[in-house]
Amino acid sequence: MQLFPCPFCGLRSEGEFHFAAEAGKTRPVTTRDVNAEEWAAYLFDQKNEKGATREVWTHLPCAEMFIMSRDSVTMEVLGTQTLRKLPA
């Protein structure tokens, strides 16, 4: 059971988190033409990286989605980053 740092709640156990997506994907603007390759890349293409990864996770109790960098081999958490605008 891993420990993940929610940017809002702090360290919590893995069972409270869900993987959402690999980081860095942006939904294509679907009101214009989106070709099949572009759509497939958004929906299906995964880097599935070995080693350092950047992923979007959700902390279920507080529903916060955030970016977590971690090592998919050693399971080490390298850092987290909120996706929310923080007050200046």
């Binding site: 939904r27 959700t58 996706l83 929310r84």
Partner: peptide, 8 residues
């Protein structure tokens, strides 16, 4: 809904 709220 919550995930679409925070994504996009």
């Amino acid at each position: 809904l919550e995930s679409w709220r925070q994504d996009g």
